[in-house]
Structure formats: structure tokens, C-alpha cells
């Protein structure tokens, strides 16, 4: 993959903190990240690793206060989103960059019809008539497998999986160039997960949209993503193509993630989780963030933080003992 081609989105040195009365939570710590047109990138990591904070800071919908973007630039088509006025930013939200939320049960306004909620996005960004917006909304609903005549139904009249389809239809309504999917299947049960994923897969082939897929489900990533970035304690510890990560994983954390998956072919009685917990985001260790849980940790790991090193073209690892360091 050619890293010098024009990036659709490029995040440089992004850091997000949450300031509460008791402490400062370091949620995102100097993350660099980019995505090309039409590409699908998976952001993988445990709950609380800072994945959602990264996605929300792209759209600038972090809850402020307490959240605070302390450093960084987010270039979309060459413009720094963090420097845009609120007015300019509104033209990007929902139009150029859209987001699919984690929990479809709460992501829809309970007292408006689903049709209204989709049409509202369309009318906000396109100067078209009511009838045209209605027409386009019905098309979007049909596209995600919901009959267009359910336009006038309310969210509580849909099941969870169908609500997520509505949320997806809403996100796709303006043909965004980039779609941020924040754990789109986590709140759904497994059979519905498969349906929604398959639908997203087929939509991805139809529309030329770049995806950022946030998940902690490695299976979903394997099925869906071109590139993968592994997030740990607000940092990207390893990134590369899906093959790099799945076949040639190098960072001890990534290896641990794979080792913790139950294997169907082995007769194992117990799972093998990564020992310990993610460090407290209010009090991160000085050296490598993973050193307390790392099976190969040496003295130097707790003293200084490793740099990101490229071990193969496009495959980088943040560890002293990776091939590159």
C-alpha cells in the first residue's frame, strides 16, 4: 500500500484529555492515523482504550467540558478540522463524515419518526424539497432492508437490529466520504450482528465510502478491514494491513489478544487472557504503557517509551523488541 498517496483523513499527534474535579484522564495520547479514499481501517482495542474518543474528536462531538483536545491536527482533504468554525464544521458532520453509533437503542430520538430523522439530515445538507427528501429517505430505508412505507414509524416500533439499520441509513443518507462506525454491532445479539455486518459489507461494495471501524471484536476486523490499528491505553501500538496483523503480529499486546481468543480446534479447558488490567488512564506509567502486563518486559521498558518502528513496509510496531528497534 502506498502511504504517500493523498490521504482522505490524516490525524497528527492527537491528544485528548478529560478534566474532572478529581483527576485528568489521558484518553488519547499523541495518536497519528490516516485513511485513504475508499479504505476500511479497523481500530481495535479493549474497552476504554480511547477508540471512541478518537472517532468523536474527528467530528468534534466530544462532550466539552470535560473533554479537551490538547494537541493535534486532523486534516480532512487538506483542511484542519480542529481549526474550522462551528459553522463550517456543521457542513462536514453528517454530510462528508458521518458516524454510526454503538447503541441503536438510544441513538435514535424516541419521539420522532425514523423517516423524519433521516430526512432531516438530507435536508440539512442539500437544498431539496420535502418530497425529494422523503423519496430519498425511502430509498435509503430500502437500501438497508427496511420497507420504505415504514417512514412514519417510531423507533420503538423497530427491533434492535432494525434500529441499527436505521442508524446506518441515516449515516449513509448524504453519501459521506468517510464513515466512522463505533462498535456498530456490539449492542446486538450474534445472529443480528452477522446480518448487520453482511449488510455493511454489501453496502461498502456499493458506495465508495471509507470506513473507520471501531471494535474489540477481532473476527469482525478480519472479515471487514483492509488495515488495522491496535489501540492500547490511548496509543496505537501496532498497525499494518489486515494480513500483517493477523499473520505476522509482532507487538506483545496484539499477540496476547490473539492468544486470548478461544480456539475451536484445540481441546483447551481454559481461556488464556492477558494478565492484569489496562493502566489507570489518570496515572499512566512513564515507560511503555504495556510493560506491566508484558511477558517480555525488561528494565528499560519501564524507563522510557519505545518509538514506533516500521518492521515491514506499512507495518509498524511500538516496542523495543520488535524487529525495527
Amino acid at each position: 500500500m502506498n502511504s504517500t498517496s493523498t490521504n482522505l483523513l490524516e490525524i497528527k499527534d492527537l491528544a485528548v484529555e478529560y478534566h474532572t474535579d478529581e483527576a485528568v484522564i489521558y484518553a488519547v495520547n499523541h495518536v497519528d492515523f490516516s485513511i485513504n479514499k475508499g479504505e476500511t481501517v479497523g481500530l481495535v482495542g479493549e474497552t476504554g482504550a480511547g477508540k471512541t474518543s478518537i472517532a468523536r474528536s474527528i467530528l468534534r462531538i466530544l462532550p466539552m467540558p470535560p473533554a479537551k483536545v490538547v494537541s493535534g491536527e486532523i486534516f480532512y482533504n487538506g483542511n484542519d478540522l480542529l481549526k474550522l468554525s462551528e459553522r463550517e464544521m456543521r457542513k462536514i458532520r453528517g454530510n462528508k463524515i458521518a458516524m454510526i453509533f454503538q447503541d441503536p437503542m438510544t441513538a435514535l430520538n424516541p419521539i420522532e419518526t425514523v423517516g423524519f430523522q433521516i430526512a432531516e439530515t438530507i435536508q440539512q445538507h442539500n437544498s431539496i424539497s420535502h418530497a425529494e427528501a422523503h423519496q430519498r429517505t425511502c430509498e435509503m430505508l430500502e437500501m438497508v432492508g427496511i420497507p420504505g412505507d415504514r417512514f412514519k414509524d417510531f423507533p420503538h416500533q423497530f427491533s434492535g437490529g432494525m434500529k441499527q439499520r436505521v442508524v446506518i441509513a441515516m449515516a449513509l443518507a448524504c453519501n459521506p466520504a468517510l464513515l466512522l462506525a463505533d462498535e456498530p454491532t456490539t449492542a446486538l445479539d450474534v445472529t443480528i450482528q452477522a446480518q448487520v455486518l453482511e449488510m455493511m459489507q454489501s453496502l461498502k461494495e456499493k458506495v465508495e465510502t471509507a470506513f473507520v471501524l471501531i471494535t474489540h471484536d477481532l473476527g469482525v476486523v478480519a472479515e471487514f478491514c483492509d488495515k488495522v490499528a491496535v489501540v492500547y491505553a490511548g496509543e496505537i501500538v501496532e498497525r499494518g494491513s489486515a494480513e500483517d496483523i493477523f499473520d505476522r503480529a509482532n507487538h506483545p499486546y496484539t499477540l496476547g489478544l490473539f492468544a486470548s481468543l478461544p480456539k475451536l480446534d484445540a481441546t483447551e479447558k481454559r481461556l488464556s487472557p492477558i494478565k492484569g488490567l489496562m493502566p489507570d488512564p489518570t496515572d499512566l506509567p512513564d515507560g511503555c504503557r504495556f510493560c506491566d502486563r508484558c511477558p517480555n518486559a525488561k528494565d528499560e521498558c519501564s524507563k522510557s517509551s519505545p518509538k514506533e518502528a516500521e518492521i515491514a513496509p506499512g507495518h509498524t510496531v511500538k516496542c523495543f523488541f520488535s524487529g525495527g528497534n
Binding site: 441513538a107 424516541p110 420522532e112
Partner: peptide, 26 residues
């Protein structure tokens, strides 16, 4: 604080619409 208010914001709606149409009505 509800999720659907974040959704409304993420759709690119102006503050006025988010507050009066989506938040106040609820």
C-alpha cells in the same frame, strides 16, 4: 446527555435545532 442528542449533533444540525427540536421536545 442522551445519545440521540449526540446523534443529532453528528448529523450536522445547528445548535438551535438540536436544543429545541430534539432536546426540548423530549
Amino acid at each position: 446527555r442522551q445519545d440521540y442528542i449526540v446523534t443529532a449533533k453528528a448529523k450536522g444540525l445547528p445548535e438551535r435545532k438540536v436544543i429545541y427540536r430534539h432536546a426540548l421536545k423530549n
